[in-house]
Amino acid sequence: MEFNELKHKVSSLIEKQDVNQDEKLRLICELLKAEVSHYDWVGFYFQNEDKKELILKAFAGEPTDHTIIPFSKGICGQVAVSNENFLVDDVKAQNNYIACSINVKSEIVIPLFVNNQNIGQIDIDSHTAKAFDKEDETFLEWINSEIAKKLF
């Protein structure tokens, strides 16, 4: 499915009146995993600023032991500190990578900003090397922007 088509579906989920914020995030994760062939695990982590850690709030894919990630640890923890997108073509080449599954080959993490503050991120793993490109990055930035405007 093309990203433009998916934008309409994501917008519809965000606008749903009969589900809470957590459920909307979970539904977005499930939609992305189901509709984008190279998205094998999709999750939203949110910051617990007091403890300098990320907490997994919603996901679709295989369960993970990494429900709490300290700032600076792994790709997600690095994005919590850098406030910048992080595309990884080959997770084995990263010395600060936290392995969620032996099948993961590449990862993309995009921070979610509310009022110019990084409050969380969308994290996507793929079982395909070099799975992500600028189109994925732009699409995921759009999703986070819509979530920030309409859910927070």
Results as ranks from 00 to 15, higher is better:
14 I>Y: 01
146 E>D: 07
70 P>Q: 13
46 F>R: 06
134 K>W: 10
75 I>M: 11
80 A>F: 05
25 L>H: 04
121 Q>W: 00
42 V>D: 03
44 F>L: 01
44 F>T: 00
145 S>I: 05
55 I>N: 01
86 F>G: 05
37 S>T: 10
100 C>R: 10
99 A>S: 15
98 I>D: 12
133 D>H: 06
49 E>L: 01
9 K>R: 14
71 F>D: 13
136 D>H: 02
53 E>W: 10
126 S>K: 07
14 I>H: 01
137 E>G: 07
80 A>N: 01
79 V>N: 06
14 I>L: 00
65 D>T: 15
74 G>L: 03
54 L>E: 09
128 T>L: 15
46 F>W: 02
113 F>D: 04
15 E>K: 04
146 E>S: 11
55 I>C: 03
70 P>D: 14
79 V>T: 08
116 N>R: 03
128 T>Q: 13
5 E>F: 15
102 I>D: 12
80 A>Q: 02
125 D>A: 04
104 V>A: 15
140 L>Y: 12
41 W>I: 05
16 K>W: 06
126 S>G: 08
5 E>G: 09
129 A>M: 12
112 L>I: 03
137 E>V: 09
148 A>V: 08
23 E>T: 15
19 V>E: 08
17 Q>L: 13
51 K>A: 11
104 V>E: 14
21 Q>G: 03
97 Y>M: 01
147 I>R: 02
149 K>R: 14
71 F>L: 11
42 V>W: 05
137 E>L: 13
40 D>Y: 04
47 Q>P: 00
144 N>I: 13
123 D>Q: 05
127 H>Y: 10
21 Q>S: 10
85 N>W: 04
126 S>E: 06
90 D>N: 11
8 H>T: 15
6 L>Q: 02
20 N>Y: 08
87 L>A: 13
39 Y>P: 03
118 N>W: 07
140 L>C: 13
150 K>V: 12
100 C>A: 11
27 L>V: 06
111 P>A: 09
92 K>H: 12
39 Y>F: 13
3 F>M: 01
127 H>I: 13
143 I>L: 11
96 N>K: 00
99 A>T: 15
133 D>V: 00
147 I>E: 00
102 I>R: 09
12 S>T: 14
99 A>G: 12
46 F>L: 08
79 V>W: 05
124 I>P: 11
135 E>A: 13
34 A>D: 15
9 K>Q: 12
